[in-house]
Computed example of a mutant assay.
Amino acid sequence: MRGSALPARHDGGTAKTAHRRRSVVVRIGLLVALVGLTSGCTANDLPRLGMPTPITAQAQRVLRLWQGGWAAALFVGCIVWGLIIWCVIAYRKRDGAQAPQTTYNVPIEVLYTVVPVIFVAVFFYFTARDENYVTKLSAHPDVTVEVVGYQWDWQFNYLSGPQPDAPIVAQVTGDAAHGHPATLELPAGETVRFKLVSPDVIHAFWVPNFLFKRDVIPGRMSEFDVHIDADKQGTYIGRCTELCGLYHDQMIFYVKVVDPVTYQHDLETMKAQYAAGGAS
């Protein structure tokens, strides 16, 4: 009877021990997830995860891709950390006994191969989808601006349309060296086509709130569109992010987003100034 009673007590103890281990693993997993979600972020920064406030439809797409990438990375990290912690607790050496040794576990090896391939395929799909959306050109943009980056300032030429031979109707030239950076005025709620050109060296056109930048390369014109959100009126800073020479740091400009009525009024004023032989 004594011999038959011992296994029962041993089984009960084993069950309790296993339950405690699972409880510890769950608590550690929750703690890791909580730390990952809260570390380094304030309540205001958490939704954008450090990104600037997006002001275009394309920037919104980029922000969602950024947030999705972080969520996927956290999900994978929690799984990996959870498996590591579980193995450490469940298979640690006890009472001087050696843990069971397993080799050539085909199901596990297949799992470790297939799952990463699936993750990479999913990441690639969303990245390619959003890249195509961000770089897609509209058939009929509302505003077309030729951006000229030169050593060391910016010039913005308002064109009559997106055609290659469209004439300039208004012009804004910066003088950042004397405290007058160029200000590019754009209408809220409309699509803007940018044509980027450079007469000297490589520059880079970057507005942080666009969540997008592109090089300005001599001898080649680059194009991209943005659709500005209707509720994002305000003034935003822009910079050159390509080291272009001695006064690279002064190549700043501003993007002023106004309502369409104000934009049309100001554009007519700029057109009159340009027709009279001067740039605003």
Rank of each mutant, 00 (worst) to 15 (best):
M251E: 15
V76D: 03
R64P: 02
T191D: 05
A33E: 11
D215C: 07
A272P: 00
Q155S: 15
W86K: 13
Y236N: 05
A275N: 15
L267R: 07
L137P: 10
F205M: 04
V114S: 04
T173G: 10
Q67Y: 07
C240T: 09
C87W: 02
D165Y: 09
V197T: 14
F126W: 06
Q151F: 02
V88I: 05
R220V: 13
E185V: 14
S4K: 07
N132W: 04
T191K: 04
D215P: 07
I237V: 14
F156T: 11
L267P: 03
V258D: 05
A59M: 08
Q58M: 08
G161E: 05
E223K: 10
L196E: 05
L34W: 11
T269L: 06
G68W: 01
A272M: 02
G40R: 00
V147L: 08
E190N: 12
L37Y: 05
P260R: 02
P107R: 04
I108F: 15
A166W: 06
V24G: 00
V143S: 11
G69Q: 05
Q58D: 10
Y104F: 15
W70D: 04
L74N: 04
I28T: 15
T235R: 12
E185L: 13
K195A: 11
P187K: 01
V106T: 14
H140C: 08
I202S: 00
P164Q: 01
A71D: 13
L31R: 05
H178N: 13
G40E: 02
Y247A: 05
R92E: 04
A43N: 06
A128I: 09
A177N: 09
I89H: 03
P141D: 12
A97P: 01
V192N: 04
E146H: 06
A90S: 00
Q273W: 06
V106Q: 13
N157M: 02
L137Y: 08
W152K: 15
A8C: 06
Q60D: 13
F124A: 15
W206A: 13
D215V: 13
R239T: 12
D229H: 12
G149F: 01
A43R: 10
Y247L: 08
K271T: 01
G234T: 02
T235M: 10
V147I: 15
I228S: 07
V88D: 06
G50V: 04
G174L: 02
I79Q: 00
L46F: 13
R9S: 10
Y125W: 00
D229A: 14
V255F: 14
L211H: 15
A90T: 01
V25I: 14
I202R: 07
E190S: 13
E242V: 14
V25R: 09
P208Q: 09
L246D: 09
N157Q: 03
P7V: 06
L49G: 03
A15N: 14
Y112K: 06
D200T: 06
G277M: 03
S23P: 01
L65W: 05
V35D: 01
Y91H: 10
W152G: 13
G13N: 08
V106S: 11
W81S: 11
